[in-house]
Amino acid sequence: MADAEPINWDHLKTRRPSDTDRAALRETLVERALAVKQHGWDNYREAWTPGELAGVAYLLQDSALLEELDEHEGSVLTRFAGALYGFHGARKEIESGLVDTQAWFAAARTELARRSSEADR
């Protein structure tokens, strides 16, 4: 194994998600939250990664699941800052207090509420 090439992560450091990427991530998260609201968590605990579970739980404000996953607001927001803004953008976002990431989740919650009320009609 000593002769193995080191892994180069530079391609991830230069990745800059677009507005389209962020919108697609929001759509996925909202869809998953709607599925959990309809069916509960059991079908998804093994299907989604812990990070995906934490993101949906945070969107749903499910503090019990976040605690079970040993996650808190800061860890979820920091993880999603990377997904939303890329490596360098996330560093700046974290330094600014994750304001844009919090706003992104607030917009996702608004979308979730809108779609939930439509489904209840």
Score class of each variant (00 low, 15 high):
Leu12Ala: 07
Gly74Tyr: 00
Asp19Lys: 14
Arg26Ile: 00
Ala113Cys: 04
Asp62Cys: 06
Ala47Glu: 14
Leu60Cys: 12
Arg91Asp: 10
Ala24Ser: 12
Ala33Leu: 04
Pro17Met: 06
His88Gln: 13
Thr20Lys: 07
Arg15Gly: 00
Phe80Trp: 11
Leu98Arg: 09
Phe105Ser: 05
Ala108Cys: 03
Tyr85Thr: 02
Leu77Lys: 01
Lys13Ile: 00
Trp104Arg: 05
Gln61Trp: 01
Ala113Leu: 09
Phe105His: 03
Ala23Leu: 12
Asp21Trp: 02
Ala35Tyr: 08
Gly40Tyr: 07
Lys13Gly: 02
Arg22Asp: 09
Leu98Ser: 13
Gly86Asp: 04
Trp104Cys: 02
Leu77Ser: 01
Asp19Arg: 10
Glu52Trp: 10
Ile94Thr: 08
His88Asn: 10
Leu65Tyr: 11
Asp42Arg: 13
Arg115Lys: 13
Thr28Cys: 02
Leu59Phe: 06
Trp48Ser: 11
Asn43Leu: 11
Ser75Pro: 00
Ala83Ser: 09
Gln38Glu: 15
Tyr44His: 15
Arg15Ala: 14
Asp70Leu: 11
Gly86Gln: 09
Arg91His: 11
Ala64Glu: 15
Leu34Lys: 04
Thr20Ala: 15
Ala119Glu: 11
Arg79Tyr: 14
Asp42Asn: 06
Leu12Lys: 08
Ala106Thr: 10
Ala33Ile: 11
Gln61Met: 08
Ala90Leu: 04
Asp70Trp: 05
Met1Cys: 06
Ala23Gln: 14
Gly55His: 08
Asp21Val: 06
Pro6Gln: 06
Gly97Pro: 05
Pro50Lys: 12
Gly86Thr: 07
Lys92Val: 08
Trp104Gly: 01
Gly82Asp: 03
Glu67Ala: 14
Glu27Ile: 01
Ser96His: 10
Phe80Thr: 10
Gly97Glu: 03
Ala54Val: 04
